[in-house]
Nucleic acid binder design. Structure first.
Lengths: 206, 206
DNA sequence: AACCCCTCTCTTACGGCGTAAGACGATTAT
DNA sequence: ATAATCGTCTTACGCCGTAAGAGAGGGGTT
């Protein structure tokens, strides 16, 4: 019954490592405990339940995303999108979680509010502003899903299972280059993002 | 030990009903069996395992999406996006699954190939074509996630938990109208989709 | 009729899961 | 030294997915 010097942060860190390594599906309280040299129930001293661990991972990851709504909105939106993308790519195993948890922490709401206010100053009305934000955010999630797509339990970006190059010549050609380097992905991301941002504007006004 | 007249289709239908009603997390083989008046193990005669049930649900839902790459590409892309959106909205509980399973069924690949070929005729090269397709598809997923967003186990679109209208005036105003009618959502969807499509074009050519 | 065989369903069992309840050492405060 | 608090462990319950195989019921062949 030696004390191990645990803390909520250490629990979350170990959980993040485990999830990065083996996927969300592989995270269990017992395994997480084993990882930390402790029985499963001990974790409940630091965390109310397993869902709180998952929420903690999401919050932690989102905390790295910088949102500074200053200057021309398309520019800070682009910076936000880039930083969001980087955060997601750093922990792609979390995507299934992130994609389905609405922003609801106090910090998240504050950030949301600041961005919305900045957009209102640009001539968007309140609900347009919110829509712009969710559109950009979900766009990023979607792009990263496509870029790093992986099934929850199954980590490797499969080389496409049953696939006949004769039957699917264009796909075959597109996949031939291995879908491109990280730079290619970044280029395509920026390109599509610009396309989206260019089209988003207040219904009336500049 | 009366025979019940089951079939893979009936199993999937019951699973879909259950998931629509209670969420993905609530789907268990035992419960699904109960639903069908049968012991859990009986299901394994029709389906190799639980993952196959989930895959079946996704495939079934995707089968309703029409893709007819004919005429101007932006027009059929718009039709595709609309039909995809409708299919997702019909079963929002499946979103967490759909968002993380790559297209890999033979039918899905054929459809993908046809769309890619049509885009190549418009001047996109092969990998650009694939990117356009995934961009539009993930855009739709993202929009529907935002529109119908719900956590796996927890079905109701929460009225936002802890939230102080003083602290978040713009958000409060945006949410005041209940975020809008289905038509509002459709309008915003179409608006953002047009913004995106307008910006997507072959790197060289018309 | 009797037989067999195939199709379908059930029983039992195992190892894992999340977590409620509470016992019990170890540390700290008094 | 005694008491309070903290951190950890033990035990237990009811779920889960599914492996293995037993057995019931009906159809086809003799």
């Amino acid at each position: 019954m030696k004390r191990v010097g645990l803390s909520r942060e250490k629990v979350l860190q170990a959980a993040l490592d485990l999830v990065d390594r083996e996927g969300v599906a592989a995270l269990s309280m017992r395994k997480l405990g084993r990882e930390l040299g402790v029985e499963a129930m001990t974790l409940y001293y630091y965390v109310p339940n397993k869902d709180a661990v998952l929420d903690g991972l999401v919050e932690r990851t989102l905390a790295d995303v910088e949102v500074r709504p200053e200057g021309p909105w398309r520019e800070w939106a682009r910076r936000f999108a880039g930083s969001f993308r980087a955060a997601l790519l750093a922990h792609p195993a979390l995507l299934p979680l992130l994609a389905t948890r609405p922003v609801s922490t106090p910090g998240g709401l504050d950030t949301l509010e600041r961005a919305a206010q900045a957009l209102v100053k640009e001539g968007f009305d309140a609900s347009e502003a919110l829509h712009v934000i969710t559109t950009v955010a979900t766009f990023v999630i979607g792009q990263v899903l496509a870029e790093a797509g992986r099934t929850p339990g199954h980590d490797e970006p499969e080389p496409v299972p049953d696939f006949d190059a004769e039957r699917h010549p264009v796909l075959a050609q597109a996949l031939a280059g291995g879908l491109g380097t990280p730079e290619d992905h970044r280029d395509r991301f920026d390109f599509a993002l610009d396309a989206l941002l260019a089209g988003l504007r207040p219904r009336q006004g500049p």
